[in-house]
Each structure stands twice: as structure tokens, then as C-alpha cells.
Design a protein around this nucleic acid. Structure first.
Length: 272
DNA sequence: CGCCAGGCCTGCACGC
DNA sequence: TGCGTGCAGGCCTGGC
């Protein structure tokens, strides 16, 4: 379940291995991802050299000189560097072969992910142009959240999942950040004040940073690690813990449904 | 067998 | 009429 931290850890793992490498071939075994993998991907990528790997929200942006490869991992996708000779597994849909005999291999069992190609600024692509501030950048703050939610009745949990307010906060970290900020996920976003939004923004940052650091510790063997461990899972305060005691006060964690997504919270620590 | 999880785009219905 | 808003559907597989 790649959320922003997993995508960032992926970016950090891939960048040094890709930068300066030339593409010598592209193999698309199954183009049926969320959107079809562009049929012309092999021809446009052939001979291109990777210059950089960036990230916007949960989108990975590969600067290939002639254009940009955009990859979204959906909810079951992973990218790793493999030996080209290693036989692909069942859900290995795309290989991008490099000039050193290795390849970047996309695995995505559920195929909610996407592989796109654009020739100009990927941030202007329709899928990316409306994305809100990066949570770890300076233009995200309690103030931006406060301003964006004036007059809105939507529960704060669902507002946090809206990528136009803040980029890349998924279900797990929305739950965790609200716990850390002591805010009831059902509280109407428009009725939360500046001070609490400052706490919430800080909680979002802290949670994401911590998760990235935890993932970063596995960076060394990133390329060849088989299934990736999620250390951070051990540390969840509320996510997936319904019925278990709150780590802060002992009250049983509750689970409710908001917008067809599971929400977890502590009824005592989190207030409207 | 059925249900659920996950991200997030898309389309619809609604009210001002 | 257009817009902002809030909801629900859809995509897909594996695990319970």
C-alpha cells in the first residue's frame, strides 16, 4: 500500500541507480493499468537517458531528457531494479531495460497504478495540475488548510484525503495525523480553528517524515530486497487497531466508515 | 463463496 | 447557467 512515504523511499532508492543510465529497451507485458500504458512508450524511451527522479504527491516523475515518464503505484505497485535475466513474476507488467544489463521493473497485482509519458512539464499534466501543496514543503501549513476549508462541512478526515488540499496524504497517515493532533476525524473541516490546524499540519509533517525515515533504513538493500518490510506498521497509533487499547489513554480504538473508507480514532484523545 | 482493503479519477445530484 | 460541493461508482487481486 504505497502512500507518500513509500513513494518517496522508492524515489530515493531508484534515483542513484537510474541517473545517467540509458534505456536500451522497453517491455510491456500487460498495458492494462489504470490507463493503458502508451503504445509508443518503447519508441519514445528507447535511447533516452535518465536525468533525475522527482515526486509530486504520489506520482513519480522520471526526467528522461526527451520527456517525462510518470508512474503512479496505485495501491499495490512497486518499482525495483532487477537483473534483466531474472524471469518476470506474474504481475511484473513493465520492464525498462538499462544499459548495464539491469532493468526497472514495475509490479502491480491490482493494476490501479499508471505509467504515462509526457513531452512537456509533467506538473501541468491534467492529473497533476490540480494537486495541492506538498506536505513536506514550505507552502503547506495550518494556514493553508484553514483557508481551504472555510465554509466546508466535509469531515476533516475526508478533507485530508483530498489531494487538492494537501498532496499525497492517504488513509493510513490521515488517521495517524488526526490522532496525533487530537482531532476527531468526524469534525467538520470548516469549524476547526487556526490553532488546531497548525497542530494538524505539524502532525502530518511529523508522521510522514518519521515514516520516510523508517523506510529509509532499508534503503541500502532496496534494489534487491524481495518483499519490503513496513517497520512503521508496528508504530501505528490507531490505524487497524479497532478494539485495541489506545496507546495514550487505554480506551478502545474505534472504527467507523467515512466516505467508504475505514477511519480509526480514540474516542477519548480525539475531540471535535 | 462473499467481502474487504487500498488510491483517486470520474460522473452524478444537489443547492446557491 | 454555472459553479462549488459532497457522494458513490469503478477499476483489480489477494487474503480472510
Amino acid at each position: 500500500m504505497p502512500e507518500l512515504p513509500e513513494v518517496e523511499v522508492t524515489r530515493c532508492g531508484l534515483a542513484p541507480q537510474l541517473t545517467g543510465r540509458r534505456v536500451v529497451g522497453v517491455r510491456v507485458r500487460n498495458p492494462a493499468l489504470r490507463w493503458p500504458v502508451p503504445a509508443r512508450l518503447p519508441e519514445v524511451l528507447q535511447g533516452a537517458t535518465f536525468r533525475d527522479v522527482a515526486r509530486r504527491g504520489k506520482y513519480l516523475l522520471f526526467d528522461c531528457g526527451a520527456g517525462w515518464l510518470i508512474v503512479h503505484l496505485g495501491m499495490s505497485g512497486s518499482l525495483r531494479i532487477s537483473d534483466c535475466a531474472t524471469p518476470p513474476a506474474k504481475h511484473d507488467h513493465v520492464d525498462i531495460e538499462l544499459d548495464d544489463g539491469r532493468c526497472m521493473r514495475l509490479r502491480d497485482p491490482r493494476r490501479f497504478g499508471a505509467v504515462l509519458w509526457v513531452e512537456d512539464d509533467p506538473r501541468r499534466h491534467p492529473l497533476l495540475s490540480g494537486i495541492g501543496p506538498e506536505p513536506l514543503a514550505d507552502d503547506f501549513s495550518g494556514e493553508t488548510l484553514w483557508r481551504a476549508t472555510r465554509g466546508r462541512g466535509i469531515p476533516i478526515k475526508q478533507a485530508l484525503l483530498d489531494g487538492r488540499l494537501v498532496a499525497g496524504v492517504g488513509n493510513i497517515y490521515a488517521n495517524e495525523a488526526l490522532f496525533q493532533a487530537g482531532i476527531d476525524p468526524r469534525a467538520p473541516a470548516g469549524r476547526i480553528g487556526r490553532v488546531r490546524y497548525a497542530d494538524l499540519a505539524e502532525a502530518v509533517r511529523a508522521i510522514l517524515r518519521r515514516a520516510i525515515e523508517a523506510g529509509g533504513s532499508s534503503l541500502r538493500d532496496f534494489a534487491d530486497s524481495a518483499g519490503n518490510p513496513g517497520y512503521f506498521q508496528q508504530e501505528y497509533a490507531v490505524y487497524g487497531r479497532d478494539g485495541q487499547p489506545c496507546r495514550a489513554c487505554g480506551a478502545p480504538i474505534r472504527r467507523v466508515r467515512q466516505g467508504q473508507r475505514a477511519t480509526f480514532y480514540c474516542p477519548d484523545c480525539q475531540r471535535r
